[in-house]
Amino acid sequence: MKHLYSINNLSKSEAISILDTAKSMAEVGGKAVKKLPTLLGRTVVNLFFEDSTRTRISFEAAAKRLSADVITFSAKGSSVSKGENLKDTAQTLEAIGADAVVIRHWASGAAETLAQSNWINAKVINAGDGTHEHPTQALLDAFTLRESLAPNQKDLSGLKIGIVGDILHSRVARSNVLLLNLLNAQCVLIAPPTLLPIGIENWNCQYSYDLDSQLAELDAVMMLRVQQERMNAAFFPSTREYSRDFGLNSTRLSQMKPQSLVLHPGPMNRGMEITAEVADSNQSVIRSQVTNGVSVRMSVLYHLLSGDAA
């Protein structure tokens, strides 16, 4: 694996190896010394063109637990003002001697552009690019699902996962659809028609406009955050109507299988796509997702930075 800018960079066996290794990474938390020497002397740069405290600290913790040096480069720019030039930034990081670059960017494809450019030799990890992909989120979701629902399996076959909400703008959904397919799970995307992408018939998954009709079938449901800026852009009439049809509340949760799980990539709009009751229920694994995020990102860093001098 040369880079991780898309789930498409992974074969099934690589994806499983990342999940298996993440399990070993999780063990380090229980040891006397909560740190591994694996990436001692290596430099990981967090390159963030878009704010995301959660993802940044997760990668930071992951790199530090593997003994890597971590540099955070916050190059804020929006699609309106170009801000920091990606090429210049990349060349700066190259000069600093970065071994891996974790990039978060508002532009779809930015991670791939960086990886395929000759501006930098470092390994590129996509920490979310525009409305394209967020592969480590999908990997941590898969890890969470496997730990809880299929501990004796390598893949996720036999599971049916619903992804609910703003699929159209969701990089989490895109990566999850690819990974769930790779790991042989079934996937159903649930949203009003305005929030489902054009051409979804050709995606390798089912889709539905009706959450209630799907609940009984699902082993887990991933609730997506509805971005503030979508709320006034005619994707749905009102937050109240959205919440009524697509919000996850206790009544809906009770219609799901007893062992089914609730996931959310965070940050949540409590009361909008998910009620506080559901978020804090026993079936919610939202906090495990955060913990697992560190282990999975450790695993990804280890996989990318192994054998790079061979």
Binding site: D20, T21, L36, T38, S306, G307
Partner: peptide, 21 residues
């Protein structure tokens, strides 16, 4: 006792899945 993540040749060999200690 798995030692995969303590090796000194991480850069020289492809990643291997550690076994459970």
């Amino acid at each position: 006792l798995d030692i995969t993540l303590y090796r000194d040749d991480v850069r020289l060999r492809p990643a291997r899945t550690p076994q459970e200690t």
